[in-house]
Design a protein around this nucleic acid. Structure first.
Lengths: 189, 189
DNA sequence: CAACTCATTTGAACAGTGGTCAAATAATAT
DNA sequence: ATATTATTTGACCACTGTTCAAATGAGTTG
């Protein structure tokens, strides 16, 4: 090759993921083609297949990345210096914010039905839910049963899922989100 | 044409919808092609485009159909001879049951992100939600605000959406669904 | 320097997609 | 019998994910 800068001419997984991430976030899984990603990088589409066996596998690499981000966000929220009750609220709100800030990823993490992709993902959401549940359980000091935490989770999930469809930003619904969280926590505190 | 039975040789919207419905339910929107539908009917794919301008429009016709089913179910539940509180529970549970009994339809009604399709759909879910909200509002006698009803709806939606992914039948999670509904109604009554 | 190795990249090829449209067909009206 | 009209066909377009023989080029060895 001669048309590329000599500094770093070899394609890497990271380079591909960087290009793909933006496109997937902007357009969603189905509407990004391997050729588009390759073009963005200045390589031919075939080159990507040397580094990732699949479009699905490439996508999955990004999903794993974002599950990590979500887990980090949850743990970080727990460390915040707040009253237990406010902290709990912050965590629930934080979950919604994450979902609506990383819409495509959330969609992929929790909503993708596509068989190819789902094969890769399967277990990841559970791990993240575990962290969510444990954190919540810790913060409400036994005021919520496992059952109830699960209901809270599903209810947050419903909020995110719904507004995901409408390509709305978190800021546009932050008040609604706060009200939703307050509704869910009405029983406790 | 000569290869078709003489009884009814002309392609109709209904015939196309009948063929498409099964395929969409079985495989999902993205994995059904116009050529597959046409093949099922014994026509060329071009013929479908005479009756529907789009794959999306064809799909939308089915969506409208299914929203009608859901509305009917909600109204029917309200007519059931039960105490107001039990009736409310029955409606919330009924919503979940509908979602998990007509999984593909629910997915189409509320989860499809595809832009073309969404353009058609946009307003339909709102109409159905209106019916849902009004019914709930009527039954709880002002004990729930509009805001809270919306939260309840989103929370039910979250339940359905989650278990949809796992291709689970309503019976398998009816206990969980009941607990979820009870959790949501804990604030009132 | 030349020869060989081998990771990497290319781009043609394949089977499929949604959509378009001139042309063929068949039924109906005049 | 002719003209009109509704319907259907299938070639065509630009696109998709994926495969793979061939080209490339950098690094190692003799």
């Amino acid at each position: 090759m001669s048309s590329h800068n000599s500094v770093q001419r070899d394609l890497t997984k990271d380079m591909i993921m960087d290009a793909a991430r933006d496109l997937f976030i902007e357009k969603g899984y189905e509407h990004v083609s391997m050729r588009q990603i390759a073009k963005e990088l200045g390589y031919s589409h075939g080159a990507i297949y040397y580094h990732f066996t699949n479009k699905a596998e490439l996508f999955f690499a990004l999903v794993v990345e974002h599950f990590g981000m979500l887990e980090q966000k949850l743990l970080q929220l727990e460390q915040t210096p707040l009253e237990s009750k406010e902290k709990l609220e912050a965590i629930l709100l934080g979950y919604i914010e994450f979902g609506l800030t990383h819409q495509s990823h959330y969609e992929i993490m929790f909503l993708i039905k596509d068989e190819e992709v789902r094969d890769f993902i399967n277990q990841s959401p559970y791990k993240t839910y575990e962290i969510f549940a444990q954190t919540v359980h810790r913060l409400c000091g036994g005021k919520l049963s496992i059952q109830e935490i699960w209901s809270v989770f599903l209810s947050l999930h419903g909020f995110v899922t719904h507004y995901l469809r409408h390509v709305i930003k978190f800021d546009d619904v932050s008040d609604l989100a706060k009200a939703h969280v307050k509704f869910l926590l009405k029983n406790i505190s």
